[in-house]
Amino acid sequence: MSRILVLLLCLRLALGAGPVWAGAWPRDEGETFLSFGGNVALFGGAMRPVHYDPMFYAEHGLTARLTLGIDGYTADAGTAGSLFAWLRLPWRPGDGDDVWAVSTGLGATLLPDGTHEATTRLGLHWGRGLESGWLALDAQGQLGVTRLSHQAKIEATWGHKITPLWTGLFQGQAGYGLSGDLYAKLGASVIWHTTETFDLRLGLTRAMTGDRGGGLTLESWWRF
């Protein structure tokens, strides 16, 4: 199960845009997780909604339930991006097989005209552990505090442990951006558990909207 909880940190990475979502499970008290990566190759003329999309993500368990995090990314060929600090708190922990959590954050969003706006963020997270994997749903909304820019997204994830060294990850994501455009993506990847504290993920992402291009994604994850 510890492997599953670590892998949930990469819910957002596999689709190559925006900050990673850590799912409903809290980070253990005193534990830190750090990740960065992005798409290292593009195909099919990918520009929007899939591009190189570099990102970083870090979180730390403040208590057994409260997790503090920071994330940042750029997307849409550098015309979109954000930087956020946030807190996540489980809701109804231990209620059967389901785990729920809420998250809230404050940061800055890069707008299409090149300016930045202070932005609030709210997330709702659900997860369920399976015998050899997990299921998860993550929803997130953002609202600017001055110009009231807004965007939202939802993502579904299924993870499956193939062997002690390898795990498969399958995802679908849909949402709307700052300009009101709707988008959807699909992603599949494999995770190589190199050591107890370091993993690598290699994945493919394909846009179902926009230019319908895709990307090859590579990320590294550390736990300490």
Rank of each mutant, 00 (worst) to 15 (best):
G105H: 15
D28F: 02
E31L: 09
L148R: 12
T195H: 05
T104I: 05
G30W: 03
I191V: 10
I70G: 14
M1E: 11
G16N: 10
R27C: 10
W221T: 02
S82F: 01
G16I: 00
S149M: 04
L216G: 05
Q151L: 04
L87D: 04
G18F: 13
L8R: 14
Q140P: 00
M208K: 05
W166Q: 13
G123P: 01
R65P: 07
W25R: 09
V145G: 01
E131L: 12
T63C: 08
Y176C: 07
L137T: 06
V20E: 15
D28Q: 09
S189I: 00
F36N: 11
P49E: 01
H160W: 15
A207N: 06
H125A: 11
G94K: 08
W134R: 03
I191R: 00
S35I: 06
E117V: 14
D76H: 07
G72Y: 02
G23P: 07
T109M: 09
R27T: 14
D95Q: 11
Q171M: 00
L200I: 06
V6N: 09
W166E: 14
G16T: 13
L66T: 10
L87Q: 03
L178K: 06
V102C: 03
L165H: 14
G45C: 11
D28E: 13
L111Q: 08
R3I: 05
E196I: 01
E29W: 06
Y52F: 15
E131F: 03
L186N: 01
P90C: 12
Y57M: 06
T205Y: 02
G30K: 04
L202F: 07
G107D: 12
A22L: 01
T119I: 12
L111D: 02
V102G: 05
M1N: 13
I70A: 15
D113M: 03
P90K: 12
I162W: 12
L9T: 10
T146W: 06
P93G: 02
E131R: 10
L62Y: 07
L15G: 14
H51D: 09
L169H: 07
A101E: 04
R48H: 15
V145D: 06
M1K: 10
A108Y: 09
G203D: 02
T209Q: 01
F56L: 15
D211H: 12
G177S: 12
G61L: 05
S132V: 10
W86L: 01
V6E: 13
F36T: 11
